[in-house]
Design a protein around this nucleic acid. Structure first.
Length: 768
DNA sequence: AGCGGAACTTAGCATTCCAGGA
DNA sequence: TCCTGGAATGCTAAGTTCCGCT
């Protein structure tokens, strides 16, 4: 079997293409390679985004050789076969329950394929599908009228299903099925009422004295360009504004607006570098400051007003239940903040109007009235989906939806289903692992790739990795890994280094199964270039189809959920002290959570203030030590015998250096003087209130002088290593107790510093 | 088979809220 | 009481998956 099957199998794929020309074409057809500038031409010829199965590949034969050499076990390698025959098409793993079967089946399968899979259980799912499909189709066409009359969604759906399918007869039965099955994903609601979406307030013009400048001249702008300039100005001190792509896209769109709305001064804006948005920025900052200064009462009132306005949008009624709506505010206009090297970042995202929004609501429900003039683009009644409103955003052409909030029944149920699926995977995971381990040696290249990918997904919790378009940031997941992302470190270690979702860097060195190592070596073998796909015969849909054959609904991402949950539980078990305090248990929980975050590579960028705040923490720690040092000196002064009694106290704080002493002593002096001044002012204010005369300036000066003297004294004491005991508290035991207290504070402080440092890039909330 | 669109989930960044410490 | 930092929440970008079409 192997022979036949494999040969047929192989051909199809063949790796993408050889380096140059193939992809160049591909690319050009699509788009002028604006892609990441990173390695411009490499990309141009290196990467061909879509077709994995593209051209016949010369490379295959090489592979086989390599493989033969390296892998005795897999004797007949079929790499070769791949190269030769080209008869069939590819059929990635199909439904066989075990890899082997799958392989065999494949060949013969194609004709029958779809049926065998869905066939039996299909009955009901099919209905569901049809229902949905039809509805959608209908909507697209706007055929809405036809069935519209059927009040009941179910009925409607049924009708369609029927139309599409052949059967008929028992409508009633079908009807019930719908009812009963509504968890199968087709019908989501019977009644749906809500108040639509909330549009942001119209643009408010800046005061006429606030103007950006061009080449030094203030420009008077129409509202449209002024608003967009303001979007940029607001980001002036963020890295967005410093980003070249962001600047270029913003400037291009802004110029477009200026074309129709030239500045009153008649100046032609051409050069971004001559633009000075600072006056606008400063105005915004001022506004922010004002907002902060509002009294608590004012803030409260503003909040109450806001809440009053959004009240109607908060709740939707579904089948009689009240449910919270999630993002009922439509996205305000702004500059697109794409992450990483997104080619479109900085692009102007338009303001939305009712004419952009499609509303989904029960027919029986009143159609909401927009809070700004205009009428909805469309009102639909699709009970097979859970969105309440939908629109298309102009920057990337992506669809945006208004859904219920995370706490709603719909989201909650689907969340639970997710975990149930992950739990169910537990029952299958052993078999799956066994199978892919065996398949690592498969003669069928496609299967071998799939097995290798599964290994990575399972072991490293990688994401599936769909192909992406040219107009997006260049990021990858497992199936879209390229050769350049994997480095082999003999004997059995691989280094993975790539930008994943959100352009977060994934960087790991892991020891892998020798066969995995060998496979990757084969996949990387010669005629390929660094920009070629590592798994050139694997797609996410192929992979998921294979996974689905083990367990209904099993897909690549379930492994992430599964492994995250497993790791969490496992760590929890290991770390939780049998009978610990609550604090210890919480610590265990946090630690386990952190492990998960690391596994899933959840990261955050280190905050801009991280460095500063760490330095502050460091100084705080040193300040405590300084205090302790003084206490020690006091102690030894009060009772010299203590030196013998507590030798461990004699030489502490060795990390306190002159540099710090000066800084600390100066800052102490400053803060003390500051405090004195404030106190003085307060006292005077009070006196004044009581109708008395304020104290003289000289009172304050005296106090300040005193502080200065004390400070000098303190420095002297430090140098002399001898501190006079205060009148009270000269008791050695008390001093010792105080030292102990400081020790504890030092400890806590140290721990929190380490903690903060080690967590600076780990995003802990995601996995929570 | 592969593409593209629809519908949802996932996740980082920004902002707001809140509690604990100087 | 004010400040600060961390948690909670809001926002929306960026993924995955499924499905129908060609």
């Amino acid at each position: 079997m192997a022979g036949g099957a494999s040969s047929s199998e192989d051909e199809r794929p063949l790796s993408k293409t050889v380096a140059g020309q193939g992809r160049a074409n591909g690319e050009s057809s699509k788009k002028p390679a604006s892609k990441q500038t990173k390695n411009g031409d490499a990309k141009a010829n290196g990467k061909e985004k879509k077709g994995k199965s593209a051209a016949p590949a010369p490379g295959s034969s090489d592979l086989s050789e390599e493989e033969e050499k390296s892998a005795a076990s897999s004797s007949s390698e079929d790499e070769k076969p791949l190269a030769k025959v080209v008869p069939k098409k590819k059929q990635p793993a199909a439904s066989g329950s075990t890899p082997k079967t799958a392989a065999t089946k494949k060949g013969g399968k194609k004709g029958a394929k779809s049926e065998s899979e869905d066939e039996e259980e299909d009955v009901k799912p099919k209905v569901g599908k049809n229902g949905k499909a039809t509805t959608t189709a209908k909507r697209g066409k706007k055929a809405k009228d036809e069935d519209e009359e059927d009040v009941k969604p179910d009925v409607k759906a049924k009708g369609k299903g029927r139309a599409k399918k052949e059967e008929e007869g028992d409508e009633d039965e079908l009807f019930k099925w719908w009812e009963a099955e509504n968890n199968d994903g087709s019908v989501k609601w019977t009644t749906l009422e809500h108040n639509g979406v909330m549009f942001p307030p119209a643009y408010v013009r800046l005061p006429s004295n606030i103007k950006m400048k061009y080449d030094g001249t203030p420009l008077t702008l129409d509202p449209e360009p002024e608003e967009v300039a303001g979007f940029f100005a607001a980001l002036l001190e963020t890295e967005h504004a410093a980003d070249k792509t962001f600047q270029a896209n913003f400037f291009r769109d802004w110029l477009k607006l200026l074309k129709d709305h030239p500045p009153a001064e008649g100046i032609k804006v051409k050069d971004f570098n001559k633009c000075d948005f600072r006056p606008m920025f400063e105005y915004f900052e001022l506004q922010k400051e004002k907002k902060k200064q509002m009294t608590a009462a004012e803030k409260k009132q503003a909040k109450a007003e806001r809440e009053e306005i959004e009240k109607p949008y908060l709740i939707a009624t579904i089948d009689g239940r009240k449910e919270k709506v999630g993002n009922f505010r439509v996205e305000p206009p702004g500059l697109f903040r794409g992450r990483g090297e997104h080619p479109k970042k900085g692009t102007f995202k338009y303001r939305l109007n009712p004419e952009d929004i499609v509303i989904n609501i029960a027919e029986s429900a009143p159609v909401p009235v927009p809070n700004i003039p205009g009428s909805w683009k469309e009102v639909v009644h699709d009970n097979t989906v859970t969105w309440l409103a939908h629109w298309k955003e102009n920057v990337n052409g992506n669809s945006k939806y208004v859904f219920l909030s995370a706490g709603s029944t719909w989201k909650g149920q689907s969340d639970r289903q997710k975990f149930e699926k992950a739990k169910k995977l537990q029952q299958y995971v052993d078999v799956i692992r066994k199978d892919y381990t065996a398949e690592l040696k498969s003669k069928i290249m496609a299967d071998r790739q799939r097995a290798t990918a599964m290994y990575l997904i399972d072991r490293l919790a990688l994401r599936a990795g769909n192909e992406k378009g040219e107009e997006e940031a260049d990021t990858v997941g497992c199936c879209s890994l390229r050769l350049e992302h994997v480095t082999l470190i003999p004997p059995c270690t691989i280094e993975l280094r790539f930008l994943g979702k959100d352009s977060i860097m994934y960087e790991q060195e892991v020891e892998v199964d020798p066969q995995v190592f060998k496979n990757i070596k084969i996949f990387k073998a010669d005629p390929k270039t660094p920009e070629d796909d590592l798994f050139d015969r694997l797609t996410t849909s192929g992979l998921n189809k294979h996974l689905g054959s083990y367990m209904e609904g099993l897909t690549a991402k379930v492994f992430r959920t599964y492994n995250a949950s497993y790791t969490f539980q496992d760590q929890l078990n290991q770390l939780t002290p049998a009978k610990g305090t609550v604090a210890e248990k919480i610590a265990a929980y946090n630690k386990a959570n952190k492990e998960v975050a690391i596994l899933c590579n959840h990261q955050k960028t280190v905050s801009r203030t991280h460095g500063d705040s760490m330095a502050k923490l460091g100084d705080k720690l040193l300040a405590i030590k300084y205090q302790r040092m003084r206490l020690r000196y006091t102690l030894f002064n009060v009772d010299p015998k203590m030196k013998k009694k507590h030798p461990e106290l004699v030489d502490l704080e060795s990390d306190l250096e002159d540099d710090f002493f000066q800084r600390h002593e100066t800052s102490l002096l400053e803060t003390n003087i500051d405090k004195a001044k404030k106190k003085f002012e307060k006292e005077n204010a009070k006196l004044q209130e009581e109708g008395q005369k304020p104290q003289k300036e000289s009172v304050l000066n005296e106090r300040i002088d005193k502080i200065k003297e004390e400070n000098v004294e303190m420095i002297k004491e430090r140098k002399a290593k001898k501190v006079e005991a205060p009148a009270r508290g000269a008791d050695a035991d008390k001093i010792l107790a105080n030292i102990k207290k400081l020790d504890d504070r030092i400890e806590t402080s140290k721990v929190s510093i380490e903690d903060r440092e080690s967590n600076k890039t780990v995003a802990l909330s995601t996995s929570k």
